[in-house]
């Protein structure tokens, strides 16, 4: 499985990269939505994107909406990982095409739980 981590914080990307590496994902990283779109256009399409909301250049909401409009990327699973935590924001993200939503702060277990829900890792993968 291939995952792309899209977050403007290197510290946050590092945390997510280590969690995903423990689940045997190959990871790529981008600092904002446009950089992620460029990488996806040029290179291999990831199976999963972990997407922050507030980022420079292109935010995560715009990124998700853009990916969902492109039929070539319909198999990409999109999971928001963001500090945006209002009820309305989660509804907006889901409506735009996000499959799951993790609110920062989170523990590694939370990411694993959600990836299990999405069927991307099997139960007890970190055990």
């Amino acid at each position: 499985m291939r995952a792309m981590i899209i977050d403007d914080s290197r510290a946050m990307r590092s945390i997510l990269r280590r969690i995903l590496a423990g689940l045997d994902f190959e990871t790529a990283e981008a600092g904002h939505g446009q950089e992620a779109l460029d990488q996806m256009t040029a290179g291999p399409v990831p199976d999963l994107c972990l997407v922050d909301w507030n980022m420079p250049v292109m935010d995560g909401y715009t990124f998700i909406s853009t990916v969902r409009r492109n039929a070539e990327w319909r198999n990409v699973t999109l999971m928001m990982v963001t500090t945006e935590s209002e009820h309305t924001q989660i509804v907006r993200a889901l409506a735009a095409g996000a499959h799951e939503y993790v609110i920062k702060p989170f523990t590694p277990d939370a990411i694993v739980d959600k990836l299990e829900l999405l069927g991307l890792v099997s139960k007890g993968a970190l055990a």
Binding site: D8, S9, P56, E84, S85, T88
Partner: peptide, 22 residues
Amino acid sequence: ELVNMVGGNVKSLMPGPSTLSL
């Protein structure tokens, strides 16, 4: 990133909609 997490959650306590700066 620390202040982003704290600030985003504080924003959710208050009347919205609002946007969070970088």
